[in-house]
Design a protein around this nucleic acid. Structure first.
Lengths: 144, 144
DNA sequence: GCCGTATAAGTTGTGCACAATTGAATTGTG
DNA sequence: CACAATTCAATTGTGCACAACTTATACGGC
Protein backbone atom coordinates (compact mmCIF):
# COMPACT_ATOMS: atom_id res chain seq x y z
CA UNK A 1 0.00 0.00 0.00
CA UNK A 2 0.92 3.65 -0.31
CA UNK A 3 3.37 4.70 2.34
CA UNK A 4 1.30 7.81 3.07
CA UNK A 5 -1.57 5.67 4.31
CA UNK A 6 0.40 3.84 6.97
CA UNK A 7 -1.59 4.28 10.14
CA UNK A 8 1.40 4.73 12.37
CA UNK A 9 2.54 7.78 10.41
CA UNK A 10 -0.65 9.74 10.68
CA UNK A 11 -0.80 12.84 12.81
CA UNK A 12 -4.55 12.57 12.71
CA UNK A 13 -4.60 9.19 14.41
CA UNK A 14 -2.04 10.41 16.95
CA UNK A 15 -4.37 13.29 17.82
CA UNK A 16 -7.37 11.01 18.06
CA UNK A 17 -5.53 8.54 20.30
CA UNK A 18 -4.00 11.17 22.55
CA UNK A 19 -7.30 12.94 23.00
CA UNK A 20 -9.08 9.75 24.00
CA UNK A 21 -6.23 8.76 26.31
CA UNK A 22 -6.39 12.14 28.02
CA UNK A 23 -10.12 11.98 28.62
CA UNK A 24 -9.65 8.42 29.87
CA UNK A 25 -7.25 9.76 32.53
CA UNK A 26 -9.78 12.44 33.46
CA UNK A 27 -12.75 10.06 33.54
CA UNK A 28 -12.30 8.53 37.01
CA UNK A 29 -11.47 11.94 38.50
CA UNK A 30 -14.54 13.52 36.92
CA UNK A 31 -16.67 10.58 37.97
CA UNK A 32 -16.01 11.66 41.55
CA UNK A 33 -17.59 15.00 40.66
CA UNK A 34 -20.42 13.36 38.76
CA UNK A 35 -19.35 14.94 35.45
CA UNK A 36 -18.44 13.71 31.99
CA UNK A 37 -15.58 15.42 30.18
CA UNK A 38 -17.77 17.65 27.96
CA UNK A 39 -19.85 18.57 31.01
CA UNK A 40 -16.63 19.50 32.80
CA UNK A 41 -15.67 21.76 29.89
CA UNK A 42 -18.98 23.59 30.21
CA UNK A 43 -18.43 24.00 33.94
CA UNK A 44 -14.92 25.35 33.30
CA UNK A 45 -16.37 28.05 31.07
CA UNK A 46 -19.03 28.96 33.61
CA UNK A 47 -16.52 29.03 36.48
CA UNK A 48 -14.62 31.67 34.52
CA UNK A 49 -17.67 33.81 33.86
CA UNK A 50 -21.42 33.38 34.09
CA UNK A 51 -24.16 33.52 33.09
CA UNK A 52 -23.50 32.56 29.49
CA UNK A 53 -25.87 31.99 26.62
CA UNK A 54 -25.94 28.62 24.87
CA UNK A 55 -24.47 30.27 21.82
CA UNK A 56 -21.48 31.75 23.70
CA UNK A 57 -20.79 28.40 25.36
CA UNK A 58 -20.88 26.81 21.93
CA UNK A 59 -18.45 29.34 20.50
CA UNK A 60 -15.92 28.84 23.28
CA UNK A 61 -16.08 25.04 23.12
CA UNK A 62 -16.78 24.56 19.43
CA UNK A 63 -20.04 22.75 20.11
CA UNK A 64 -23.50 23.39 18.67
CA UNK A 65 -26.91 23.46 20.29
CA UNK A 66 -27.50 19.88 19.19
CA UNK A 67 -24.77 18.82 21.60
CA UNK A 68 -25.24 21.48 24.26
CA UNK A 69 -29.00 21.49 24.71
CA UNK A 70 -29.28 17.93 26.08
CA UNK A 71 -25.97 18.27 27.95
CA UNK A 72 -27.19 21.41 29.73
CA UNK A 73 -30.48 19.72 30.50
CA UNK A 74 -28.52 16.97 32.26
CA UNK A 75 -26.37 19.49 34.15
CA UNK A 76 -29.56 21.21 35.25
CA UNK A 77 -31.16 17.92 36.32
CA UNK A 78 -28.06 17.24 38.46
CA UNK A 79 -28.44 20.65 40.09
CA UNK A 80 -25.21 22.19 38.76
CA UNK A 81 -26.69 24.88 36.52
CA UNK A 82 -29.94 26.73 35.93
CA UNK A 83 -31.31 27.75 32.56
CA UNK A 84 -33.39 30.91 32.38
CA UNK A 85 -35.04 32.43 29.33
CA UNK A 86 -33.73 35.93 28.88
CA UNK A 87 -36.36 38.60 29.51
CA UNK A 88 -35.03 41.08 26.96
CA UNK A 89 -34.56 38.50 24.21
CA UNK A 90 -36.90 35.57 24.53
CA UNK A 91 -34.85 33.50 22.12
CA UNK A 92 -31.88 33.41 24.44
CA UNK A 93 -31.36 31.02 27.35
CA UNK A 94 -28.95 32.20 30.04
CA UNK A 95 -27.07 29.40 31.76
CA UNK A 96 -26.33 30.26 35.42
CA UNK A 97 -24.29 28.35 37.98
CA UNK A 98 -26.41 26.78 40.70
CA UNK A 99 -24.87 26.69 44.20
CA UNK A 100 -23.87 23.04 43.81
CA UNK A 101 -22.19 23.90 40.53
CA UNK A 102 -20.26 26.75 42.08
CA UNK A 103 -19.17 24.50 44.96
CA UNK A 104 -17.83 21.93 42.50
CA UNK A 105 -15.07 24.27 41.37
CA UNK A 106 -12.94 23.74 44.47
CA UNK A 107 -13.11 19.96 44.10
CA UNK A 108 -12.00 20.30 40.48
CA UNK A 109 -8.88 22.32 41.24
CA UNK A 110 -6.44 19.45 41.32
CA UNK A 111 -7.62 17.77 38.11
CA UNK A 112 -5.44 19.55 35.51
CA UNK A 113 -2.31 18.88 37.55
CA UNK A 114 -3.17 15.19 37.50
CA UNK A 115 -2.99 15.12 33.71
CA UNK A 116 0.28 17.02 33.75
CA UNK A 117 1.70 14.41 36.14
CA UNK A 118 0.48 11.51 34.02
CA UNK A 119 1.72 13.03 30.78
CA UNK A 120 5.35 12.05 31.12
CA UNK A 121 6.40 15.33 29.50
CA UNK A 122 8.22 18.27 30.97
CA UNK A 123 6.33 21.48 31.68
CA UNK A 124 8.04 23.13 28.72
CA UNK A 125 7.17 20.27 26.41
CA UNK A 126 3.54 20.41 27.54
CA UNK A 127 3.46 24.14 27.02
CA UNK A 128 4.96 23.82 23.58
CA UNK A 129 2.53 21.02 22.74
CA UNK A 130 -0.38 23.19 23.77
CA UNK A 131 0.66 26.13 21.61
CA UNK A 132 1.38 23.88 18.63
CA UNK A 133 -2.06 22.28 19.00
CA UNK A 134 -3.70 25.69 19.18
CA UNK A 135 -1.93 26.83 16.02
CA UNK A 136 -2.95 23.58 14.34
CA UNK A 137 -6.60 23.91 15.38
CA UNK A 138 -6.66 27.50 14.14
CA UNK A 139 -5.20 26.54 10.77
CA UNK A 140 -7.55 23.58 10.35
CA UNK A 141 -10.55 25.78 11.06
CA UNK A 142 -9.34 28.37 8.56
CA UNK A 143 -8.88 25.73 5.87
CA UNK A 144 -12.59 25.35 5.20
CA UNK B 1 -11.12 30.98 40.14
CA UNK B 2 -7.96 28.93 40.33
CA UNK B 3 -5.56 29.78 37.55
CA UNK B 4 -5.00 26.08 36.85
CA UNK B 5 -8.61 25.70 35.77
CA UNK B 6 -8.52 28.32 33.06
CA UNK B 7 -9.81 26.60 29.97
CA UNK B 8 -7.39 28.27 27.62
CA UNK B 9 -4.41 26.81 29.48
CA UNK B 10 -5.43 23.21 29.31
CA UNK B 11 -3.56 20.78 27.13
CA UNK B 12 -6.51 18.44 27.39
CA UNK B 13 -8.87 20.90 25.74
CA UNK B 14 -6.27 21.68 23.09
CA UNK B 15 -6.09 17.96 22.26
CA UNK B 16 -9.85 17.62 22.18
CA UNK B 17 -10.24 20.66 19.90
CA UNK B 18 -7.43 19.71 17.55
CA UNK B 19 -8.70 16.16 17.21
CA UNK B 20 -12.19 17.32 16.33
CA UNK B 21 -10.84 19.94 13.93
CA UNK B 22 -8.74 17.29 12.17
CA UNK B 23 -11.64 14.88 11.71
CA UNK B 24 -13.73 17.83 10.50
CA UNK B 25 -11.16 18.40 7.74
CA UNK B 26 -11.26 14.71 6.87
CA UNK B 27 -15.06 14.49 6.94
CA UNK B 28 -15.90 15.84 3.47
CA UNK B 29 -13.04 13.85 1.90
CA UNK B 30 -14.18 10.66 3.57
CA UNK B 31 -17.77 11.39 2.64
CA UNK B 32 -16.70 10.96 -0.98
CA UNK B 33 -15.58 7.45 -0.07
CA UNK B 34 -18.70 6.78 1.98
CA UNK B 35 -16.73 6.40 5.20
CA UNK B 36 -16.74 7.98 8.65
CA UNK B 37 -13.40 8.66 10.32
CA UNK B 38 -13.43 5.57 12.58
CA UNK B 39 -14.47 3.44 9.61
CA UNK B 40 -11.53 4.90 7.68
CA UNK B 41 -9.20 3.90 10.52
CA UNK B 42 -10.43 0.32 10.30
CA UNK B 43 -9.89 0.33 6.54
CA UNK B 44 -6.35 1.70 7.02
CA UNK B 45 -5.52 -1.24 9.26
CA UNK B 46 -6.99 -3.74 6.80
CA UNK B 47 -5.20 -2.14 3.84
CA UNK B 48 -1.94 -2.79 5.68
CA UNK B 49 -2.75 -6.41 6.41
CA UNK B 50 -5.81 -8.63 6.36
CA UNK B 51 -7.70 -10.55 7.46
CA UNK B 52 -7.72 -9.33 11.02
CA UNK B 53 -9.73 -10.46 14.04
CA UNK B 54 -11.94 -7.99 15.84
CA UNK B 55 -9.62 -8.16 18.81
CA UNK B 56 -6.52 -7.29 16.76
CA UNK B 57 -8.32 -4.36 15.14
CA UNK B 58 -9.30 -3.21 18.60
CA UNK B 59 -5.75 -3.39 19.89
CA UNK B 60 -4.34 -1.38 17.01
CA UNK B 61 -7.00 1.31 17.24
CA UNK B 62 -7.68 1.26 20.97
CA UNK B 63 -11.35 0.40 20.44
CA UNK B 64 -13.41 -2.37 22.01
CA UNK B 65 -15.96 -4.73 20.51
CA UNK B 66 -18.76 -2.48 21.70
CA UNK B 67 -17.56 0.11 19.21
CA UNK B 68 -16.22 -2.20 16.52
CA UNK B 69 -19.02 -4.74 16.22
CA UNK B 70 -21.67 -2.33 14.93
CA UNK B 71 -19.07 -0.39 12.93
CA UNK B 72 -17.93 -3.56 11.14
CA UNK B 73 -21.52 -4.52 10.53
CA UNK B 74 -22.01 -1.20 8.74
CA UNK B 75 -18.80 -1.66 6.72
CA UNK B 76 -20.06 -5.09 5.71
CA UNK B 77 -23.50 -3.74 4.77
CA UNK B 78 -21.74 -1.20 2.51
CA UNK B 79 -19.79 -4.00 0.85
CA UNK B 80 -16.31 -2.93 2.01
CA UNK B 81 -15.51 -5.89 4.28
CA UNK B 82 -16.65 -9.43 4.96
CA UNK B 83 -16.85 -11.04 8.38
CA UNK B 84 -16.29 -14.77 8.61
CA UNK B 85 -16.39 -16.94 11.70
CA UNK B 86 -13.07 -18.68 12.03
CA UNK B 87 -13.28 -22.42 11.48
CA UNK B 88 -10.54 -23.37 13.90
CA UNK B 89 -11.76 -21.07 16.69
CA UNK B 90 -15.47 -20.43 16.51
CA UNK B 91 -15.21 -17.51 18.90
CA UNK B 92 -13.17 -15.48 16.45
CA UNK B 93 -14.50 -13.41 13.55
CA UNK B 94 -12.03 -12.73 10.74
CA UNK B 95 -12.57 -9.41 8.97
CA UNK B 96 -11.60 -9.61 5.28
CA UNK B 97 -11.46 -6.87 2.67
CA UNK B 98 -14.19 -7.17 0.05
CA UNK B 99 -13.25 -6.13 -3.51
CA UNK B 100 -14.96 -2.74 -3.10
CA UNK B 101 -13.00 -2.20 0.10
CA UNK B 102 -9.71 -3.03 -1.57
CA UNK B 103 -10.55 -0.68 -4.44
CA UNK B 104 -11.17 2.17 -2.02
CA UNK B 105 -7.52 2.30 -1.04
CA UNK B 106 -6.43 4.09 -4.20
CA UNK B 107 -9.08 6.77 -3.77
CA UNK B 108 -7.88 7.32 -0.19
CA UNK B 109 -4.25 7.93 -1.11
CA UNK B 110 -4.40 11.70 -1.22
CA UNK B 111 -6.26 12.18 2.06
CA UNK B 112 -3.34 12.36 4.53
CA UNK B 113 -1.58 14.97 2.38
CA UNK B 114 -4.68 17.09 2.53
CA UNK B 115 -4.44 17.31 6.31
CA UNK B 116 -0.75 18.12 6.11
CA UNK B 117 -1.55 20.97 3.71
CA UNK B 118 -4.33 22.33 5.92
CA UNK B 119 -2.26 22.08 9.09
CA UNK B 120 -0.25 25.24 8.61
CA UNK B 121 2.79 23.56 10.15
CA UNK B 122 6.06 22.57 8.56
CA UNK B 123 6.80 18.91 7.87
CA UNK B 124 9.29 18.88 10.75
CA UNK B 125 6.81 20.44 13.13
CA UNK B 126 4.17 17.89 12.13
CA UNK B 127 6.64 15.07 12.59
CA UNK B 128 7.67 16.37 16.00
CA UNK B 129 4.02 16.82 16.97
CA UNK B 130 3.30 13.23 16.02
CA UNK B 131 6.11 11.79 18.10
CA UNK B 132 5.25 14.00 21.08
CA UNK B 133 1.63 12.87 20.87
CA UNK B 134 2.71 9.23 20.70
CA UNK B 135 4.90 9.62 23.76
CA UNK B 136 2.03 11.36 25.54
CA UNK B 137 -0.48 8.66 24.64
CA UNK B 138 1.93 5.99 25.83
CA UNK B 139 2.50 7.74 29.16
CA UNK B 140 -1.20 8.33 29.71
CA UNK B 141 -1.98 4.67 29.08
CA UNK B 142 0.76 3.60 31.48
CA UNK B 143 -0.58 5.91 34.18
CA UNK B 144 -3.56 3.71 34.98
C1' DG C 1 -47.22 48.32 11.07
C1' DC C 2 -46.24 44.42 7.89
C1' DC C 3 -43.20 40.91 6.09
C1' DG C 4 -39.16 38.63 4.71
C1' DT C 5 -34.82 37.40 6.75
C1' DA C 6 -31.87 36.28 10.32
C1' DT C 7 -30.93 34.35 14.76
C1' DA C 8 -31.37 31.37 19.13
C1' DA C 9 -32.32 27.15 21.02
C1' DG C 10 -34.30 22.76 20.70
C1' DT C 11 -35.38 18.24 18.29
C1' DT C 12 -34.47 14.17 15.44
C1' DG C 13 -31.59 10.76 13.57
C1' DT C 14 -27.00 8.51 12.83
C1' DG C 15 -22.70 6.94 14.41
C1' DC C 16 -19.19 6.66 17.52
C1' DA C 17 -16.97 5.67 22.63
C1' DC C 18 -17.26 3.18 26.58
C1' DA C 19 -19.05 0.56 30.67
C1' DA C 20 -21.37 -3.50 31.85
C1' DT C 21 -23.37 -7.71 30.70
C1' DT C 22 -24.27 -11.91 27.95
C1' DG C 23 -23.45 -16.13 25.50
C1' DA C 24 -20.74 -19.19 23.15
C1' DA C 25 -16.31 -21.50 22.51
C1' DT C 26 -11.85 -22.76 24.30
C1' DT C 27 -8.33 -23.71 27.65
C1' DG C 28 -6.29 -25.11 31.91
C1' DT C 29 -6.34 -28.14 35.93
C1' DG C 30 -7.60 -31.71 38.76
C1' DC D 1 -12.79 -36.77 31.19
C1' DA D 2 -15.09 -32.86 33.94
C1' DC D 3 -15.64 -28.34 34.86
C1' DA D 4 -14.11 -23.89 36.37
C1' DA D 5 -11.86 -20.00 34.48
C1' DT D 6 -10.76 -17.46 30.43
C1' DT D 7 -11.39 -15.51 25.91
C1' DC D 8 -13.92 -13.55 22.01
C1' DA D 9 -17.56 -11.13 19.96
C1' DA D 10 -21.96 -9.21 20.40
C1' DT D 11 -25.54 -6.64 22.95
C1' DT D 12 -27.51 -3.00 25.93
C1' DG D 13 -27.61 1.49 27.70
C1' DT D 14 -25.74 6.30 28.29
C1' DG D 15 -23.73 10.36 26.52
C1' DC D 16 -21.48 12.91 23.25
C1' DA D 17 -20.75 15.02 18.05
C1' DC D 18 -22.80 16.57 14.17
C1' DA D 19 -26.05 17.22 10.26
C1' DA D 20 -30.60 18.56 9.13
C1' DC D 21 -34.70 20.43 10.48
C1' DT D 22 -38.18 22.95 13.48
C1' DT D 23 -40.03 26.56 16.27
C1' DA D 24 -40.05 30.91 18.27
C1' DT D 25 -38.42 35.42 18.57
C1' DA D 26 -36.19 39.59 16.86
C1' DC D 27 -34.89 42.81 13.35
C1' DG D 28 -34.67 45.62 8.96
C1' DG D 29 -36.61 47.61 4.96
C1' DC D 30 -40.46 49.31 3.05
Amino acid sequence: MTEALRLDRQVCFALYSASRAATAVYRPLLEDLGLTYPQYLVMLVLWESEPKGVKELGEELGLDSGTLSPLLKRLEAMGFVERRRSGEDERRVAVHLAPAGRALSSKAGRIPQHLADAAGLSAEELEQLRTTLERLTEALHRSH
